[in-house]
């Protein structure tokens, strides 16, 4: 097994909303190795999105530690988290979050312009099979295509970590498979550690490990003895 890239100990996140206190993460422990493909599974409110946000430096933990390599993300300030995201993390969201006013190419360029060793935007788009659609605006692309642009945008900076929140949630099976293929090829070709929140069984079958969440903790970890290839994936 290769080196550990993420390591959480006693990670806690409490949201206060009005008079209600929500314990989204309740002292979670976790280790993820470099290059692993992980699926997070669990009912809504079980804490997986919160974990993903903290992993990606989008949110602060309330207590506990969360190490990215040798850096404790819980100790970083806003500015440092920004640079952490910029240098190491790629995101894919359920609803793509493309900027509607920029073309596919430009949406990718948005990231490559501020990264250290990015690939060319067209290269990234080629990896997700969208080279011929790169000058289209989001509104001219199908949902699956938009999501693949989002993936291209996420990987264009050659991130060490790719974090995906329901990447196929808004897609039908056919387009969903193309997205999974794209994610797999990135994981295989670039060795990017990939963490995916999904209910999609097909994705679970291509992951190294599936972590089950309940009440802000990991209740069960299921290890796939052998990962399926993208071509073998059935929906």
């Amino acid at each position: 097994m290769s080196e550990t890239i993420f390591s959480a100990r006693g990670l806690t996140k409490v949201y206060v909303s009005g008079e209600v206190e929500v314990r989204a993460l309740a002292g979670l422990d976790l280790d993820i190795s470099n290059g692993e493909m992980i699926v997070l599974l669990g009912p809504s409110g079980s804490g997986k999105s919160t974990l993903l946000n903290i992993m990606g430096g989008l949110d602060h933990a309330t207590s506990g530690t969360f190490f990215f390599k040798d850096r404790d993300l819980t100790r970083l300030d806003d500015e440092a988290l920004t640079f952490y995201r910029r240098d190491h993390v790629g995101f894919v969201f359920q609803f793509y979050n493309l900027l509607p006013s920029l073309t596919a190419f430009e949406n990718v360029a948005l990231v490559t312009e501020i990264s250290k060793q990015p690939m060319r935007p067209d290269e990234a788009l080629a990896m997700v099979g969208l080279k011929d659609r790169m000058h289209h605006f989001p509104a001219q692309l199908s949902g699956g295509e938009q999501q693949r642009v989002a993936i291209a945008r996420a990987i264009a900076k050659r991130p060490e970590v790719l974090l995906c929140d329901e990447p196929t949630g808004a897609l039908d099976s056919k387009t969903g498979i193309k997205v999974i293929e794209a994610l797999l090829s990135v994981n295989e070709q670039l060795g990017t550690t990939t963490v995916i929140i999904t209910h999609n069984a097909a994705i679970q079958s291509v992951a190294d490990r599936v972590m089950h969440f309940a009440d802000g903790r990991i209740s069960n970890i299921q290890k796939n003895a052998s990962r399926q290839k993208a071509s073998e994936v059935t929906w």
Binding site: E79, T82, F83, F91, N97, V111, K157
Partner: peptide, 10 residues
């Protein structure tokens, strides 16, 4: 939010 998520500074 997105711009910040992908690493643009405040």
């Amino acid at each position: 939010g997105l711009l910040k998520a992908i690493g643009y500074t405040n």
